[in-house]
Design a protein around this nucleic acid. Sequence first.
DNA 1: TATACTGTACATATACAGTATACAGAGGTG
DNA 2: CACCTCTGTATACTGTATATGTACAGTATA
Lengths: 127, 127
Amino acid sequence: MILRIDAESATPVYRQIVDGLRVALVKGDLAPGDSLPAVRRLALDIGVHFNTVAQAYRELAREGWLHISARGGAQVKERSMPVASKPEAATYRRRIEELIAQIQASGAAPSSLARELRRIAKALEGF
Amino acid sequence: MILRIDAESATPVYRQIVDGLRVALVKGDLAPGDSLPAVRRLALDIGVHFNTVAQAYRELAREGWLHISARGGAQVKERSMPVASKPEAATYRRRIEELIAQIQASGAAPSSLARELRRIAKALEGF
DNA sequence: TATACTGTACATATACAGTATACAGAGGTG
DNA sequence: CACCTCTGTATACTGTATATGTACAGTATA
């Protein structure tokens, strides 16, 4: 389980878990049918309380990614990608721009940043 | 002052203010020497307490964007872009991927998303 | 000095994050 | 069946973060 948690970060741990797992789910690294580690197991690995992991699992279940059961634990659902409303670009443009501005403000070179964005854009075309 | 606040959002208001202003600062819409609205004024406009705005201003001052004084209020500093350490792409790659995954999960079409990323990348080249 | 404007400081109410602990459900094994 | 062991859940509790109310201090101007 490749999942780095930054205890210093302002974003809460449970959301770091959600974010990290969601990336794996969207990319397909976690495929339908796959089992996730038990909450106590993952909690031990990343050094938090198991309830914090459980909260993250519940959030992903709420989003439709996981199916949680008493014995089987958390499993990736067959119907992975939720059937949400297709949002307009304007809806998420601001959020991307805010993140980019934040990264730029931290001193990242615009050219390097642009390269990274193109790389991700290219990867997206594969879908 | 174009600054939309979403009271429903999970991200706290003061950080929405910081994020929104930082975009304007990085883009240059807020240039060195410009004065920001008084805390009570902006607070009235967006419908929050002025202390919440003050907290946002202090955060941006801490980042080196603003100079705050008793009479002059908050002004954009000459030395806008902070002299931070140039972070490696790997440092922020994960954060971008997390945001993109989140947007994808909400149902955004990858092609539309890729187009948006390229647009931002192109804009970055201008710097 | 009086006034009117800036941002600041501090106490408070409330919500959120993380943990400890006890619990309930499901399946295996004596 | 009784028991054990594994799963996630529920509740209570502590500390932190957010937003506000109120009082204050600094600064320019009439």
